[in-house]
Amino acid sequence: MDQKSAGLNITIFFCQQLDANQDANRRVLERELGSRIKFFPLPCSGRIEPLHLLRALETGADRVYLIICPEGACRYREGNLRARKRLAFAQGLIEEIGLEPQRLELIQTTQGDQLTIDQRAHDLLARKAAFGPNPAKLQGSRGQANNARTLEPMNPGTPDVYQGVHYDYSGKKTFI
């Protein structure tokens, strides 16, 4: 059974330089699969951090792909090299907790292929479902908002300006 029919939640991080029209192209799949597919365009795959990958799994992805530029083609020189290493690091970490490291996968594109992001995603979805649902995800559904600010979950100093229905309109005018 392929990953799509298996109903898996797929998260795709990708280098935005790969597909200038990514925002439009990916919509076919977003419409079809709803919250089951999530795309996170990166300005450069070097922006990925192991924490992103872990949090993707934690918040509901069954499989996470990171699509990077061909070797030597990184706009920022070495972003894709770093992306590769960071993914490997995250793989090591999830392996330590007993999760299949292959749930995080690096897809390096090849020079000259003109695939759009939806075509790439299609290929990934058509792959055989090697894994069942991710046993480590914390929420069953990932359509829900998750406001967790992971780096600083406890910041007792920030008052919640927006509280329920009532606003304090008496605040002084802030014109220019």
Partner: peptide, 12 residues
């Protein structure tokens, strides 16, 4: 990273 890993581990 460690916190995320520990949460997932416990969940598993």
């Amino acid at each position: 990273l460690l916190a995320s890993a520990l949460r997932m581990d416990a969940k598993m």
